[in-house]
Each structure stands twice: as C-alpha cells, then as structure tokens.
Design a protein around this nucleic acid. Structure first.
Lengths: 104, 104
DNA sequence: TTGACATATCGAAAAAATCCGATATATAAT
DNA sequence: ATTATATATCGGATTTTTTCGATATGTCAA
C-alpha cells in the first residue's frame, strides 16, 4: 500500500464519493445484491453497474476508477458470474488512517 | 480546507517529503534559523531556500509547491525581511487526520 | 541609489491524469 | 450455437499537473 497511490486515488471527487457510498451500501445502493445468490452474499459489496449508475460516469471510467482504488488498496473485489462486486478494504483503510495520523 | 486539495497536495513525493521534513526541522535543516533574529524566532519554520536545497528541485517549483500546500491548509508562512518561513499547520493537519479517520 | 539576494509569479513544454466510445472477454440464458 | 449482459481493456482526445527558466517584486547592504 503506497501512500502516494492512496492519495492519488482520493484526489478525485467521484472516487472519493464511491469510497464513501460504500461505507453504507444498503443506503446508497438500495437495489444492491439483487443478483447475488443468497448462499454467497458478498457482504457490503456492490456491482460495477450499480456504482456506475450512481456515479454518473461512463462504464469504462468507473471500471478504471475501481481498478485504481483496488490497486491502491482501498477496495477489494470478488466476481460472481458476470458480476464483479467491490467493497471497501476496511483493514487497509484503517491502516492508512493510522499511517496518516502518526507519519504525516 | 478542501479534502480533495489536501489529497492532491499529498499526491507527490517531494511535497510529502517536505511535510515530513518539517515535522523535525532541526533534524532535517540543521542550519535552519541562521537568518532569524533571536527576538522573532518563528518556531519550526524553515525558509524556502533551505527547503529547496534539500528537495533538489528548482526554486520556482519549490515556491509553487509550498504555496499549494499552504492553500490546501497544510502549511503556514511568515515573512521576515527577505525570507519566507514555512512551517506545518499542526492544527489543520490534525483535523484532516481526524476527518480521514471518521469520514473516509 | 545601486547591486545583491530571497522569493513569487509568468509562460510554456512535457508528462500524467481524465474520460470517453469502441471493442474484447467472460458468463448466462435461450 | 447464438444472443444478451456485465465488466475489462484499448486507443485516443482533452484537460490538468509537473516542472523549468526567465522575469518581477520585495528587502537588505554598501
């Protein structure tokens, strides 16, 4: 987790929004999980299409953003069938907040 | 203090270094304060020239960086004669770390 | 008041980020 | 097999950031 990559990932309104929406997925993505078979239930994860709709950017842009945020360590993903579910990597985010508090 | 501006300011190795150097000015800028008359003593502040020398970037670049970091709220400055001293805005930095911990 | 020095600002070239549509890939449904 | 759907990747146009040298401004010293 390179701090600079995290700062870059957070230097954009849309990406910052996505990260904050994913704090409360059921609130910001009410129809979330519609595609998920009950037995797998990826807790807190939201599929790309739902995020794209809310973000009001193109599909390729949102896919790119999510990939960037995942590489920075802020998100993690799992694929179920044709859907990719993204959710926050809370442990990494916590570590980053801790780093910021002590090192910056 | 716009979070996005702070993230942008921190998305650069040199600027991140400057902020960290200024945590311990006497350690990273041993000749610091040479120009300061004792009676004013801007605690923790370092002049642009000393920062530039350590950062190994051009004078205009460093001046620009410092201005950007100040606008973001991370630094504050005072001018004494022909020198401008920059130091960390600890309260703002603390607030930002707190924002990150609770809002991100 | 002239010259030297510190810093800020300007203008521009180069590099990187943004962001899209088109296309590829993978899976699912018929 | 074919078609439809979700996501990823590609290629490129546009915008923003980076970074510099040149110049302007402000201050001090002789």
């Amino acid at each position: 987790m390179e701090p600079i990559d995290v700062f870059k990932a957070l230097s954009n309104k849309t990406r910052l929004n996505i990260l904050q929406w994913l704090k409360e997925p059921e609130k910001h993505f009410p129809k979330q999980g519609a595609h998920l078979p009950k037995e797998v239930s990826y807790k807190g994860g939201v599929c790309v299409g739902d995020i794209q709709e809310k973000a009001e950017a193109s599909q390729s842009t949102v896919s790119h953003y999510l990939n960037m945020m995942q590489k920075a360590g802020l998100l993690e993903s799992v694929r179920y069938g044709q859907w990719t579910y993204y959710r926050r990597n809370e442990e990494a985010i916590r570590q980053f907040a801790e780093y910021l508090k002590t090192e910056i």
